[in-house]
């Protein structure tokens, strides 16, 4: 059951921001509602005004202009099925297929997901490896922030009360990049997410650049520069030789706590395990191997 609120359906982002500025803490932007309405039902959030951002011009479109821009109100389903996403960031489409469940994907939005900053989410982790930039609009104008700076902690972002997350811009990897996203956990939301991308040279023989992010373990997802540095320049056939080392590096880069998802030491070890596994899968993809992807219990591989 929801407590009463006034619904606002502004026509433009400027109007929406003006409303947010006027209403202050009493208002919340509303898109799919899959997270917001849930917390409102629990009484954890009690906004008296909802500002619907689904109808704002440009908020529900996916555009390709060198980088790939996902409007904040684009649903996970739309991402999953977009030919543009499939062409430019195929792993994003593949991961979208595994966000939460079919009903959440049909309604929930990319912007809502990022703006809620639930630490147990898939998109933010993956987007870090795509050098995601979020665009925020407010009565003061527009600004851009790296996703890494936007997400400050668990359920905490750099968005000001009168700001709207308008879109997120992804920098697609070069064609031929071998990448994978793996998530693991027995709970409804993932215990661990690993996104790993190997940018290859023209002959697909060597890693020219790597992007690795680990999510769900720390309050916010993190890129792992130490792992990326270790992978840079490694020949594809030799990736297996560094699997153990990069697992250890990744484990050293996270600071998990004990919680329902597991003890800190277990989670740290799982980071090592799944970074290794992600590397092996990506290495297989780099080789163009046709061997089937291994299946692991309680793990989803995209």
């Amino acid at each position: 059951m929801l407590r009463p609120f006034a619904l606002h359906r502004p026509g433009t982002a400027e109007e929406a921001c003006a409303l947010l500025a006027t209403l202050g803490e009493d208002a919340a932007p509303y898109a799919g509602g899959t997270e917001l309405l849930l917390l409102m039902k629990l009484g954890l959030l009690r906004p008296r005004h909802l500002v619907d951002v689904k109808r704002l011009a440009g908020f529900d479109v996916i555009t390709d202009g060198g980088s790939l821009t996902l409007g904040a109100a684009v649903t996970h389903r739309a991402v999953e099925r977009s030919p543009l996403v499939a062409a430019r960031c195929p792993l994003v489409a593949a991961v979208a297929r595994h966000v939460a469940n079919v009903r959440v994907r049909n309604v929930g939005t990319v912007g809502g997901n990022l703006a809620f900053a639930d630490p147990h989410s898939d998109l933010a982790t993956l987007f870090l490896t795509l050098d995601a930039i979020v665009q925020l609009v407010s009565p003061r104008g527009r600004r851009e922030l790296a996703l890494a700076d936007f997400t400050r902690g668990a359920w905490e972002t750099a968005r000001a009360a009168d700001e709207l997350l308008a879109s997120v811009r992804l920098t697609p990897w070069p064609q031929g990049t071998a990448a994978v996203y793996v998530k693991f956990g027995v709970h409804e939301r993932p215990t661990l997410g690993v996104a790993l991308a190997l940018v290859l040279d023209a002959s697909r023989a060597r890693v020219t650049e790597a992007r690795v992010a680990v999510g769900c373990v720390d309050p916010r997802p993190v890129r792992v520069p130490s792992v990326e540095a270790r992978l840079r320049g490694v020949a594809v056939p030799e990736l297996e030789d560094v699997a153990g080392a990069i697992g250890e590096l990744a484990a050293a880069a996270v600071e998990p706590d004990d919680d329902l998802h597991g003890s800190a030491d277990y989670k740290r070890e799982m980071v090592a395990v799944f970074v290794r596994r992600a590397l092996r899968i990506a290495a297989g993809r780099a080789r163009g191997a046709s061997t089937p992807i291994p299946q692991f219990p309680h793990a989803v591989i995209a």
Partner: peptide, 25 residues
């Protein structure tokens, strides 16, 4: 009542949604 179980599923324009967490408007 939290979009996990699916008991409240209905189709909106053919798509499954959790009616327990979906505004009637």
């Amino acid at each position: 009542d939290s979009q996990v179980c699916g008991a409240c599923t209905v189709l909106v324009d053919g798509l499954a949604v959790s009616a327990c967490t979906y505004l009637a408007v």
